[in-house]
Design a protein around this nucleic acid. Structure first.
Lengths: 213, 213
DNA sequence: GCAGTGGGCGCACAACTGTTTACTGAAGTA
DNA sequence: TACTTCAGTAAACAGTTGTGCGCCCACTGC
């Protein structure tokens, strides 16, 4: 089996560059529409490349969409795990989490928009890809939570449920920050406040949890 | 000012029938795609009507989308308020709420799919319409919660936040039920169990809530 | 240096899109 | 009965779409 080349050879470096351009153009074109209405020619036109060139990189637009999922959630992955790892007193932890989400949205708004929009979007393959990634997040969060003193006698099942809850809340909050950034809905401070209070609500429920059924 | 006719005159009855047909066809075509990729001709073809006839009823496809929002969330509106009004012991109330959502999804899957998909979808006007409706839901839920003994000394602000939390949770749960119905993800029973436990978590947090900041 | 690989191009193709136009004919009005 | 209204039609418009074909030519490995 041939491993990946150590010296990328400017041929495939160029190929990778075009691929990136296609991905970037696609992502930015998705600001005002959804993937299922994004045209192949639209993308190549934005990059300045012939339509036929597209097929050298992706089977179709949906395929590019799947690639974008890895792109978008890969970056978030690092933030979540490293952010959760650092532990501190409860209130601070909530503040830091919310601020981390806010910062990520500020830095990568298009990625967040893409994920949030296509999570329930019209392209099945992309929906599945996003779902799988978020499932992984939920697992990892549950893993971290398991080491907390509070959830000493929680069942794996309950922990998993809690992990899902946190991930869903994270996505919702990110989406709300995004809307705030583009002037729709409440402003960033208000979103942050709501998010913090919701997390406090969950945190309280967590402290008084008793496993049944 | 001329009021709406009491005797609908078969002319406008026919018009209304075509309009309904367009709405229904549109909704069912949205099962496997999103609104921004739904074509005007696609709809009229499904109804068996000429493309130009579409303009007698809607300005464009986005306009039809907005009409679909009223259609979809109007039905849900009755369920939510009447369902919440009946009060009982805490556990039962959770069970009933979750079952009510499950039942609604079973009866109107396409409506739920539409709302969930287009809530963050590519058509701004539709996003706004859905957001406004869900905001109203949140208000109403907060209103009902205000009369609970538990939230005796809650601020209006905290109640509103809790209302949003419940509405978001409802939408998420409905979406999960929908996925279950079409074989993706966990089955209906598992979704219901998760939803119940999440509600119990929130309920616990609620009982121990103390307003700060 | 030379044969071979492969990313990108230009062009053509048929199929489709949204929108406008002038029209028809049934239903409503007086 | 004669006159108006208007939902729906048919046809044409200029653009656009995805995809396949053969060709080029900078780069690669020998």
């Amino acid at each position: 089996m041939s491993s990946t080349q150590v010296r990328p050879s400017q041929r495939e470096a160029q190929k990778a560059r075009t691929r990136r351009a296609l991905l970037d153009a696609g992502l930015s074109l998705l600001e005002h529409q959804s993937l299922s209405s994004l045209g192949l020619r639209e993308i190549t036109r934005a990059v300045g490349v012939s339509p036929a060139a597209f097929y050298r990189h992706f089977r179709d637009v949906a395929d590019l969409g799947v690639a974008l999922v890895e792109d978008s959630l890969g970056a978030l992955h690092g933030v979540v795990t490293s952010g959760l790892a650092e532990r501190s007193e409860d209130g601070d932890r909530i503040d830091h989490s919310v601020e981390a989400i806010a910062a990520f949205v500020r830095e990568h708004p298009e990625h967040i928009r893409f994920v949030v929009r296509e999570r329930r979007g019209g392209v099945a393959a992309v929906r599945v890809a996003i779902g799988a990634q978020l499932d992984r997040f939920a697992d990892e969060v549950a893993q971290v939570l398991a080491d907390d003193e509070i959830s000493r006698d929680w069942s794996a099942d309950d922990l998993r449920m809690l992990g899902e809850t946190y991930v869903d809340h994270m996505v919702m909050t990110a989406s709300a920050f995004l809307e705030a950034a583009q002037g729709e809905g409440p402003d960033e401070a208000a979103v942050a406040r709501t998010a913090r209070r919701q997390l406090r609500l969950i945190s309280l429920g967590r402290r008084h949890w008793t496993s049944t059924d």
